[in-house]
Simulated scan of single mutants.
Amino acid sequence: MLSFSLTSLRALAAAVLLLQAGTALAQAPAESAKPAGADTQMLLFWFLLSTLALVLLVFVLFFTMIIVKMKPQLRKLYELPTVHDTWSGQVLGLLIGDPALVTGKNKDELMGHDYDGITEFDNDLPPWWKYGFYVTIVFAVAYMGYYHVAQAGQLQTAEYETEMQQATLLVSADNDDPNKLTTYAALKAPADLDAGKTIFTTNCAPCHGPNAEGKVGPNLTDEYWLHGGEINHVYKTIKFGVTSKGMVAWKGKLSGKQILQVSSFIASLKGSKPAGAKEPQGDKEL
């Protein structure tokens, strides 16, 4: 019976292979006009993949037939004391229908304890659960050694900073790049400072006060700055704004020269000490 089944399987495998070969030959004339390249490689890939799947299927069927035919002999082998309690014996028992490898040996066995009608059972933890727990211990030790002891890998914070640095490389490095600081020098010409004062009075005074003493926004005349007091930092703050602090972006409303003019005017107010100045905010800059 076993030899007949093996012969049938071999015949089935040969028939499928012939069918695949015939399909490939039938497609060859239609694809002969196409240039050899990606299509040929994909066809070869799928042919090899289907062949591998067929081989695995035949192997599984063949292995299953062996287990079914030899089940009585395997059961006798499994019942031997030297085999039954070993790990390999548990695998053998799973093949012949004993799920002890998955469920454990003891299940709903009374331990002889009885408290007011409440009995205690002795149930094994499922072996798969215990092995999974052991794997987590090994993983934890390896993780601790790799990341914290040897410091061979980046932790979450360092990995985040690295990804952010890589992301900045994808932003165009032009005048509209908020990550690129300009290299302007403060304007000193009276005409530019007057123009900057006019812009400040019209657009900035409602939040920062007519003399930049600070109202809703911070005081711009002292040595303390939330986002940098150097001319290019002020330029960046005005141009791109700080949404989280309520500072709007003036990009698109003021030209680049106007932003530099008002930035230069603000820089000229340093140390003016206007009346009613708001308390310092941010970090001190000399």
Results as ranks from 00 to 15, higher is better:
Y160P: 04
E161C: 08
E161S: 14
E161W: 13
T162A: 15
T162E: 15
E163P: 05
E163W: 14
Q166E: 15
Q166Y: 12
A167Q: 14
A167Y: 04
A167I: 10
A167T: 12
T168D: 06
L169I: 06
L170D: 14
L170Y: 12
S172R: 12
S172L: 12
A173L: 13
D174W: 02
N175G: 12
N175E: 14
D176R: 09
D177W: 09
D177I: 10
D177K: 05
N179F: 14
N179L: 07
N179D: 04
K180S: 13
K180A: 11
L181N: 06
L181Y: 04
T182H: 11
T182N: 05
T182R: 09
T182M: 08
T182C: 06
T183P: 09
T183A: 14
T183H: 10
A185C: 09
A186M: 07
L187Q: 10
L187A: 11
K188M: 08
K188N: 11
K188Y: 07
A189D: 15
P190Y: 07
A191N: 11
D192Q: 03
L193P: 04
L193D: 03
D194H: 02
D194P: 06
D194Y: 04
A195Y: 05
A195P: 02
A195M: 04
G196T: 11
K197L: 05
K197G: 05
I199F: 10
F200L: 07
T201Y: 08
T201E: 14
T202M: 09
T202G: 04
C204I: 00
C204T: 02
A205M: 08
C207F: 01
H208L: 07
G209C: 07
P210C: 01
P210Y: 06
N211L: 14
A212V: 00
A212L: 00
G214C: 02
K215E: 11
K215W: 02
K215M: 13
V216F: 09
V216Q: 11
G217P: 05
G217N: 08
P218I: 00
P218R: 00
L220M: 11
L220Q: 03
T221C: 01
D222H: 02
D222Q: 07
D222M: 02
D222K: 01
E223S: 14
E223A: 15
W225I: 05
L226R: 08
L226K: 07
H227E: 01
G228Q: 00
G229T: 04
E230D: 13
E230L: 03
I231G: 00
N232Q: 07
H233K: 10
H233M: 03
H233F: 00
V234C: 03
V234D: 00
V234N: 03
V234S: 01
K236R: 15
K236C: 11
T237R: 12
I238S: 01
I238R: 01
